[in-house]
Design a protein around this nucleic acid. Structure first.
Length: 583
DNA sequence: GCCGTTTTCGGCCCGACTGTTTTCAGTCG
């Protein structure tokens, strides 16, 4: 059980209590505890063992007891009681833009709204607009948000899938009848949003025996994923049931589909090969090899490794991340696939936070985590004054911080610290700090954090003006999207990319698992336009320093090589590139 | 629910802006 699981339960308790209409401060305590726990650098279980959990400010007796209960049983009674009473779907109400705690509570208590479908009916019947405080614009916001959530219904972001996979792996490992297993499908391709989890299992001897042993193992490990065996044959099935392939369908994590393919050793890699790509990509292989049926293909490729299968198709090995795009097959046939950036290629992080603004940890601890990651350079880029809620730094505090970073840099061996700022891009595209302040910074990341409702024209103009500022080096999370939750502000990215290309401004791939912003579609366009990319963590805590992996995933899926990513360069070259617009 | 203390309950809670109204809910990190 990881900290994140405990954190999610506390966050959900807070949400359910909000919707129920409970008074505020108890809710706030659960929210605070959830935030504290997700940011902890150590496992809750260890802190409890050492008797240290309650010494953290914000965590008292009740939170510790409930944490213990969750660690032991996968859940806690208080949470289960709320879910039983209100239903888990009611939580979706708070994911809608335009609806906050007060409105969600009103909808639930006075109108009996328990899920998005009921809300949708209410919206269509016009009853929603009768509620005080909901006018034309808010209706529109809710309607757009509802449609967005519906298109992502039943999906999970990659990070959540990997958490779920960690649990499933434990369960599968506990089954003696399994030789080995590997992820396939969406998760193997590292899709930012996944439709399902697919796993290929190599059985020890008899497939049917392994199948029934695995079903037994899954059935006895119900918590914390609410794992159920499902008979739903409509689950993602890339290959038909064959004599040599069996399947198990599961629903985990409140109804998320999992398909387990069971096969013998000889078929393991060919099943992996067939189940990894999208259907569109798979069709391209068929064009190349002329095999029309998966079953024929399977027989033809029996006992071969994936590499041998690609060899037989007379194309180079296509990394799983690229087995989505039809064009990668043509590139593989011509042996022209890019050499993808590797996770170890990053030499530094150019966008991070500390407790000077809204980070959870002190600068020294964040730096220690960076040294542990063996980074060569590390930029501190706390928020600027306009991000008030994030305790953004004003000019005076920024100047103090620059000095502090320089001093810490002198005292610290093994890493170069860069003084930076994540500067807010204001409404008109100007920045929070004047040029004579910006010139003192090693790194300037400029980001939009407010006024998401501007028109596309205004927003595009706003960001381009920031790009044109010679002191701005990187545009942070360029679309403002939150995966599965928020579409991002309206902006013409083609124009933004053209402006970045012209002004030699770097665009960011933000490694926050719920952002991953820019996404592959536009990263590819940026690469084509000669724009360099920075893969940053935007870490607000020590655990978040690990999110560089998610950023690299996006870079790989976008077909980026090491040379396309600015923070793979040695420090001298990096600064030369970033400072080239300064005179 | 947590904290702190003047030991048994009162205080916790940021700011600017938008939308919808005329006082407040929601949104940005």
């Amino acid at each position: 059980m990881k900290n994140i699981e405990i954190s999610i339960i506390f966050k959900n308790i807070a949400k359910l209590l909000t919707i129920k209409g409970e008074p505020g401060f108890r809710i706030r305590s659960y929210e605070k505890a959830a935030d504290i726990i997700s940011d902890l650098a150590e496992d809750v279980s260890i802190l409890i063992e050492e008797g240290k959990l309650q010494s953290i400010s914000g965590i008292g007796k009740t939170i510790e007891e409930k944490s213990k209960e969750i660690l032991e049983t996968g859940t806690c009674q208080a949470y289960e009681k709320l879910i039983a009473e209100m239903g888990v779907e009611v939580l979706d109400l708070l994911n809608l833009k335009g609806i906050g705690g007060k409105t969600a509570s009103l909808l639930y208590n006075d109108f009996g709204i328990k899920n998005l479908n009921q809300l949708s009916d209410m919206l269509e019947s016009g009853k929603l607009q009768e509620i005080k405080g909901i006018g034309k614009k808010t209706m529109e916001t809710i309607s757009v948000s509802l449609e967005f959530l519906n298109t992502h219904k039943g999906t999970r972001i990659l990070a959540r899938c990997l958490d779920v996979v960690a649990h499933l792996s434990e369960i599968i490992n506990a089954c003696d009848a399994v030789n080995r297993f590997e992820l396939t499908g969406d998760v193997r391709r590292l899709e930012e949003i996944c439709q399902s989890i697919e796993i290929v299992v190599e059985c020890q001897d008899n497939i049917v025996e392994t199948q029934s042993a695995l079903i037994d193992t899954f059935s006895t490990h119900k918590q914390p994923l609410q794992t159920e065996i499902s008979n739903d044959e409509n689950c993602t099935d890339k290959i038909p049931s064959l004599e040599s392939i069996e399947k198990i369908h599961l629903l985990v994590d409140n109804g998320f589909p999992v398909t387990v393919y069971l096969c013998i050793a000889e078929d393991f890699e060919s099943v992996l090969f067939l189940t990894t790509p999208t259907n569109e990509h798979l069709a391209e292989y068929r064009n190349v090899c002329g095999q029309s049926e998966s079953s024929d293909f399977l027989i033809a490729s029996r006992d071969k490794t994936e590499t041998e299968i690609f060899d037989n198709l007379e194309m180079s090995f296509i990394p799983p991340e690229l087995r989505k795009y039809p064009d990668s097959v043509a590139l593989a046939c011509d042996d022209k696939l890019p050499v993808l950036i590797d996770y170890n290629d990053l030499r530094g992080d150019l966008h991070t936070h500390t407790d000077w603004s809204d980070g959870a940890h002190i600068m020294e601890d964040m730096v220690a985590a960076a040294i542990k990651r063996e980074l060569e350079y590390y930029a501190i880029t706390d928020h600027s004054v306009s991000s008030f809620v994030a305790n953004g730094l004003d000019q005076e505090r920024l100047l103090k911080q620059i000095e502090y970073v320089h001093r810490l840099d002198e005292e610290t061996d093994g890493i170069k610290l860069l003084a930076g700022s994540e500067v807010d891009i204001l409404r008109d595209g100007s920045l929070d700090f004047s040029d004579d302040i910006l010139v003192q910074l090693d790194i300037v990341v400029a980001s939009v954090h407010s006024l998401f409702t501007l028109s596309e024209t205004e927003m595009t103009k706003r960001v381009i003006r920031a790009i044109e500022n010679p002191y701005v080096m990187i545009i942070g999370h360029p679309t403002g999207r939150l995966l599965g939750r928020r579409k991002g502000y309206p902006i013409n990215l083609d124009e933004v990319i053209a402006a970045a290309s012209e002004n030699k401004t770097v665009l960011e791939i933000n490694g926050s698992p719920s952002r991953l912003d820019l996404g592959p579609e536009y990263v590819r366009k940026a690469k084509d336009a000669g724009v360099l990319i920075a893969v940053n963590t935007d870490a607000h805590s020590i655990p978040e320093s690990e999110r560089y992996r998610y950023g690299v995933n996006v870079a790989r899926r976008s077909g980026l090589s090491k040379g396309d990513v600015v923070n793979t360069y040695p420090i001298e070259k990096l600064l030369q590139i970033l400072h080239r617009n300064r005179n």
